[in-house]
Amino acid sequence: MRANHMSLLDEWRDAVVRDADRIYVAANGHSFNMSLSTGENSCLGCHEDKAKFCDSCHDYTSVSPYCWECHINPKEIE
């Protein structure tokens, strides 16, 4: 996941926006909501702490993706 999550996100985005497929059923039977931050089974729906789940690695490797210029971390809304 650490190495390849960007390709996964890219693929998921195309599936959601272009094909309107929003549910990902993994090979092991688990299903996920293909969304960064909306709903329970989304990325942040399970990994609730963005600081740990996203930022810690991004800071360490000094990359600044612009996901959160539009997507909303539900925990950050006052």
């Binding site: 309107a20 497929d21 929003r22 990902y24 059923v25 090979a27 092991n28």
Partner: peptide, 16 residues
């Protein structure tokens, strides 16, 4: 991978 539900699939919601 192939035991169980075979490959990963992308689906629509049930009540779409």
């Amino acid at each position: 991978d192939s035991h169980g539900s075979a490959k990963a699939v992308k689906n629509k919601n049930e009540n779409v």
